[in-house]
Amino acid sequence: MSKRIDVESLNVYYGDFLAVEDVNIQIDPRAVTAFIGPSGCGKSTFLRTLNRMHEVVPGARVEGKVNLDGEDLYGRGVDPVRVRSQVGMVFQRPNPFPTMSIRDNVLAGAKLNSRRMSRSAADELVESSLRGANLWEEVKDRLGKPGSGLSGGQQQRLCIARTIAVKPDVILMDEPCSALDPISTLAVEDLISELQEEYTVVIVTHNMQQAARVSHKTAFFNIAGTGKPGRLIEYAPTQEIFNNPKNQATEDYVSGRFG
């Protein structure tokens, strides 16, 4: 399953502070969409509004609409927990649960919710999720060992396996490779291009080559100055953003003439 996301005039606030202003964007299913932009421009904040993770921070709120296949995530009576089980998220720093084994980490979504599952079904889910995250061959002999014993790149793929084990429609990735070395980054990037066959993937990255390599469409966010809200400047197919941007700020940023 894979769903499209339509965002209509979204404002994101932290308390009284307007962090991101008036975003309108249509994110395609079965594709990779990259968000680029300078630090502090609100791209991570915006990403977190797509599965209502931003409200974990006290005082954070939004105005506007985020439609997941036509259903408003911010409609009345919408349960953020159900939103998050459909829109998964991978974080900047690999964060496997330190008290759990590799196997339990993959099953965390089911186990933490006390979902009953036969042993064979659980084994199957572990294998398919780890295969989906290109990690199965590396860890199949030590599923009972703690997840924190893996290398950083393996941990990040374990986190991706954990995310796809709950079978979401959308996977959000917040700079998933920024803490990884080039080889692990390559492994995760390969994985991302496989994931797009089944999921809607949205990735925030500081690495423009990465955006160019993995994404179909790219959104450029920018900020006018400190204390000003971040805005979506330009959103277009990746080729166009990098080779023929319409906006001067985008061109400055992607060609490295920023600031």
Partner: peptide, 26 residues
């Protein structure tokens, strides 16, 4: 670490379950 709470929330786990099964065991 807050990251563990967020990881749990992002898997669609409720807050009290996150506290009972992730935060306290850690």
């Amino acid at each position: 670490p807050n990251e563990l709470r967020e990881a749990s929330y992002a898997l669609g786990v409720r807050k009290w379950r996150t506290i009972a099964k992730v935060v306290i065991p850690t």
